[in-house]
Structure formats: structure tokens, C-alpha cells
Amino acid sequence: MKKLLSVIFVLCICACGLLMPVPDWKDKAGGYLEEYKSSFLKGKELSTEPHFAQATREIAAGNDLRLLAVAYLTKYALHTASLECFDDSEFLKIERLEPDAEDMAYYRFLQGNFTAVDASALPARYTGLLKAAASRNAVLAAHEISAIGDPLSRLVAAGVWVNHLPCDEKIIQTAIDTASANGWQRPLWAYLEKLHTCYLEGGDKSRARAIKNRLELLKKEKDQK
């Protein structure tokens, strides 16, 4: 029995040695992209773009256009999650050189071009929202968004809805809760602003003022730092 255990241990060690080593550029690019996401969502504007530039530089060193497209789509998704516009020129250049159905579906989804989105190529977590968007069902959409497990994906879905479809308080509140729970200042302020606008448009001035005061207080605290 002892002999068998020792043989298994040796085989495990050998198996470990047989694992394919991760390329250095890929490892660094992954790290920089994660840093970019974190600094973007937390509102660290100074360190945001340098991290993204370093990530794309490392990916470019690996000559992988698919990963480069994913990096740019990640950037666009973060802007969508924070209710901001984005410049899609770089992604379109890559797509012309090396078209990919999944990337194009995700890009169209972010742009709010729901009818052109290939549902089968879109990540599964967004298919429910795609259906709700097609029927412009806000209740269903709120439900689908709440059902998304990944908080960033949840914010992206909320951003897509808020950017391109009628304002829904529940969806915005979900996004605010998600951002607050993760300490993501940039989308939090964006959704609070949007909620304030919604209340103003709905004629609920007192709640709008309360949201505005809350936002001003938060910004003031940030400025004091």
C-alpha cells in the first residue's frame, strides 16, 4: 500500500511538471487588465488608462488579435456599466482584420442594437435580458438583471438597458446596490445621477433632491480625500 501511495505521489509531481507554462506576456496582460477594471470601477482616473495601455501592449507583443478585441470590448463594457459613451474605432479595425461572431454579438449588444445580436453567440447570462429588451419588458429585464450572478455583468446589463431603453427605477436601484456592494464609485455616481434624472422626469422632486444631496455629500467626501 505504501508503495502504491508513493507511486501515485510521484506521478502527481510529474503531472504538475507536464503542465503547459503560461506565456509571460499573457500573464502580465491578464494582470494589467484586471488592474484596469478595478481602477476604472473605483474611479482612479489617473491609473486607469496606463493599465489599459500596458495590457494592450503586452497582448500586442503576443500577436493575439482575439485577446486584443476582448480587451477593447471589456473597456466598452465598463463604459456601458458606468453609463458612458465609448469610441469603438479600435475594435472595428480588429474586427475587419479578424471577424468573430461572438465578439460582434457582444459589441452589438453593448451598442443596444438588439435585433442584430446573434443570441447564440452572446454570453448566456445576457440572453434573458436580450429577450426582455426585444419585448421592451422592464419587469422581466429587472428580474433577468437581478438574476445575473457576476456583479460586473449585472452592471453591464443594467447599463445596456438604461442607456438604450426607458428608464426603470428597479433596474437602476439594482445597479446602485451592486456598485455600492462592491465599492465601485464610478458606476455608483453614474446611476445615482441617472436616478436623479428619472425622479425629475417623473415629477418626484423630493426624492430627486434627496438623491442629489446624497450624491453631493459623497462627492464632497471624495474631494476631501
Binding site: V22, G30, G31, L67, T74, A77, L78, D150, L152
Partner: peptide
């Protein structure tokens, strides 16, 4: 593990 590149 190898870093995972996927859209959010």
C-alpha cells in the same frame, strides 16, 4: 492558472 480573458 492561466489568466482568463472573457468579456464581463
Amino acid at each position: 492558472k492561466a489568466p482568463e480573458f472573457r468579456v464581463p
